[in-house]
Simulated scan of single mutants.
Amino acid sequence: MRWSDIVEFVPILLQGAGMSIFITVSCLILSTALGLVWALLKMSRHAPLRRAATTLINVVRGLPMLVLLFYIYFVLPSIHIQLSALQASIVGLAFGYSTYVAEIIRSGIESVDQGQYEAAQSIGMGRIKTMTRVILPQAVKVALPPYSNTLVSMLKDSSLASTITVSEMTRQGTLIAAATFQNLTVYTLVAIGYLAMSLPMMSVTRALERRFGKHTVK
């Protein structure tokens, strides 16, 4: 491992790290929105909606993330839905992780005491207002530790985007290694890069667990 190699490789890998962060943040936003929808559908009063949401969650969680990415990138064009590699990676990862986020949100909502619903309704709050003003703020405290842990997983799984040619950090490392044969140097730098991004988030997760207590998804 030579210092000159490190100096040459790091700027390229940093560009890839920026793409990894972009994919992770985009996935986080989209998966949270979708996860909230799936969670509310799974808790719906209407049995068909509950069954549909439960089936969707179980099916998607039973598939590897890599298969979801391949399906969206390679199969959807056959039915005239064309996405770029970056778009497919974000949509695929977000769709997959939305099912995990849904269970985290559902667990948080169900952890709120039933008396909170009854108290809110007794002062004239409707179902939507009760959910947004009373239930969700309390559910967030329960959901934060596992939610932040999921964010770490999203960051690590952003490396899967390299399989469909997205130039994130793993892809950039692979290209450098193929061109220079400096496998030890390149992949050590890639590993250090992921650790530099994930370890602070893991520290935040531990802090949240200490603050709010450890909760498991049902």
Rank of each mutant, 00 (worst) to 15 (best):
P137E: 10
L175P: 01
R2H: 14
I123V: 15
Q87C: 11
A139N: 03
S203M: 00
P145Q: 07
I164N: 11
D5I: 02
H46E: 06
L40M: 10
I135P: 07
V75H: 07
V7A: 15
Y187F: 14
I72Y: 09
Y117W: 14
R210F: 08
V140P: 14
G62S: 03
H80W: 13
V25Q: 06
Y117F: 11
L14Y: 08
G173C: 02
L36E: 06
D157N: 14
L41P: 05
F212W: 12
T205H: 08
I23G: 01
N58L: 15
I192D: 05
Q87K: 02
S198P: 12
E168I: 10
T216V: 13
L136A: 01
F74T: 01
S148D: 04
T163E: 07
L49V: 01
K156S: 03
L49H: 03
R45F: 06
S44Y: 12
S198I: 13
R45L: 09
E110C: 06
M19H: 04
V186E: 05
V60T: 05
L76R: 06
T165I: 01
W38M: 11
L160W: 04
A120L: 09
Q15D: 12
L199E: 14
K42Y: 09
T165L: 01
D5R: 05
A139L: 00
I23D: 04
T150R: 13
L41S: 01
S203E: 03
L14M: 07
G92Y: 05
I21W: 11
V7D: 13
Y194W: 12
I105F: 14
T165F: 03
Q172M: 14
C27H: 00
I12V: 15
L93P: 00
Q121P: 11
M19Y: 11
S31W: 00
T130Q: 10
V217L: 14
R206W: 09
H80R: 15
I81C: 13
L34V: 07
G115E: 07
Q87A: 13
L76C: 03
V59A: 04
F74I: 00
A179I: 06
L160A: 02
G92F: 10
L66V: 14
T32I: 10
R2A: 14
R133F: 15
S89T: 14
L195C: 09
I29D: 02
L49K: 12
P145H: 08
H215R: 05
S203G: 11
A191I: 07
A207D: 01
K141V: 05
R61N: 01
L195Y: 11
G35Q: 00
S89M: 06
I176F: 06
T55K: 04
K129S: 13
V37E: 04
V140N: 12
A85P: 06
I135A: 03
I123E: 02
T180R: 11
Q114Y: 03
E209Y: 02
K156N: 05
W38G: 10
A53F: 04
M19D: 10
L195M: 11
A88N: 00
Y147N: 10
I81R: 13
V75D: 00
I192C: 02
I12E: 14
T55E: 09
V10D: 05
A88L: 04
L41Y: 01
T150M: 15
Q121C: 08
A196F: 00
M65C: 13
S4K: 11
